[in-house]
Structures are given as C-alpha cells and as structure tokens.
Simulated scan of single mutants.
Amino acid sequence: MQFTKKERLNLINQYKILSKLYPEDSEHYDELREILEDGYEVFYPQISEWVSEDMPEKEGKFVLDVLDLYRAIEDYKRISKDQEIIDNYYSYFRGFDGNNEGQYMQFARFLINKQNKFSEQKDYLRKNDNLNSHAPMVDIYQKMLSKWTDIGKPWNLDAQDINDIFNI
C-alpha cells in the first residue's frame, strides 16, 4: 500500500482528531499517526486492515437474487402451510459459509439486519446461526437460481416449482 504525502498528512490529522475525540482509543490512533508520520511503509497495511475488499456488483446481485427466491418460497409457505415444503432441508435460507463465503454472509447480514430488507429472514437467525451455514452454499444457490430462472422466475411459486428448485 502506498500513500502520497498529502494522503499521509490528511490521515495524520484525522488520527490526531480521533485521538482527542476518543481518549479510550488514543493509544491506537497515536500509533497509526506515528506510522504515517515516520513513513513506516511496512506497517501501512494496519491503516486499512479493517476495511473490507470491494464486493463486485455481480456477487451483490447474486445475494439479492437468492434472497428474492427465498422471499417467494416464504410467501408460498405462509399461504399454503404445506408441511412437505416446510420440512425440506432447503425450505429456509441457510445463509453462507462464514469461513469460505464471508463476504456473501456479511452482505446478507447487512441487508437483513441493517437495511431491514428481507425481514422475513429474521425469524431464522437462530436456526441458521445468524446466516452462517457452516457449509459452502454458493454452488447450491446458483443451481437453485438457475432452476428458478428456467421456470420463468415466478413470484407465485407452487409446490411443484419449489420441489423442482429444491431437488437440484
């Protein structure tokens, strides 16, 4: 990571301000300020280690599509009370694997918990360990979405559509 002198100066000033605003964290901010003041490039990654990598738009759209599919499934379950569908392993959104699909999981949490979108998923947060499936799910969701697309992406799913989506 590289910083221009102007960028370093801006960050130095920000860390001075933060150090005064948050005295309980001043030691941390002072250390970061000193790293920048003295130009210790080897420690520059510490400056941004808490900032996540950008999530590509395609991956964000994928998470939104998965949650849209599960919204359609939830609508069917709520109306039909179809026990066979309700009992299916995939009948509720299981989340994403925290070890291998962390960015997907974080985005789903952001959508559900911060933006209050897909609020029907909040009922499952205990059941799916706060959206951590503990197993890779992206490939499974891709197959489910492919099947949903093949049948025309209907919002009003019936039992046969849902079973076809689950039996990928």
Rank of each mutant, 00 (worst) to 15 (best):
T4I: 07
E7W: 12
E7N: 10
L9E: 14
L9Q: 13
L9K: 11
L9A: 10
N10W: 06
L11G: 09
L11V: 08
K16E: 13
I17Q: 13
L18R: 12
S19R: 09
L21T: 09
L21V: 07
L21M: 11
L21N: 14
Y22N: 13
E24W: 01
S26K: 14
S26E: 13
E27Y: 12
H28V: 14
Y29A: 13
Y29D: 09
D30Y: 02
E31K: 13
L32E: 11
L32N: 08
L32F: 08
L32Q: 07
R33H: 10
R33S: 12
I35T: 11
E37D: 09
E37L: 14
D38M: 09
G39T: 09
G39N: 14
Y40M: 10
E41R: 12
V42Y: 12
F43R: 15
Y44F: 15
Y44V: 10
P45V: 00
P45K: 02
S48C: 10
S48A: 13
S52N: 12
S52H: 14
D54S: 12
P56R: 10
K58E: 14
E59G: 01
E59Q: 13
F62M: 00
F62Q: 00
V63K: 11
V63H: 03
V63E: 06
L64T: 05
L64P: 00
L64E: 15
D65L: 08
L67N: 03
L67H: 07
L67D: 06
D68W: 11
D68N: 15
D68E: 15
L69N: 01
Y70T: 00
Y70W: 05
R71C: 02
A72I: 01
I73W: 04
D75F: 13
D75Y: 12
Y76E: 05
I79S: 11
K81C: 02
D82N: 15
I86Q: 12
D87L: 11
D87G: 04
Y90P: 02
Y92H: 14
F93S: 10
R94F: 00
G95I: 06
G95L: 04
G95S: 08
F96M: 10
G98W: 03
E101P: 04
G102R: 15
G102K: 14
M105Y: 07
Q106D: 14
Q106R: 15
F107V: 06
L111I: 01
L111H: 02
K114P: 00
K114C: 02
K114S: 12
K114R: 14
K114W: 00
Q115S: 02
N116R: 07
N116C: 04
F118S: 00
F118W: 05
E120F: 15
E120N: 09
Q121N: 12
Q121G: 04
Y124E: 04
R126I: 06
R126M: 07
N128M: 06
N128W: 08
N130A: 05
N132M: 00
A135D: 04
P136D: 09
M137C: 03
M137K: 11
V138E: 03
I140K: 08
Y141A: 13
Y141H: 06
K143W: 01
M144E: 01
L145S: 08
L145Y: 07
K147L: 01
W148P: 05
W148K: 05
D150I: 01
I151L: 04
K153Y: 08
P154A: 06
W155A: 07
N156P: 03
N156F: 09
D158P: 05
F166C: 00
F166A: 01
F166L: 00
N167E: 10
N167M: 05
N167I: 00
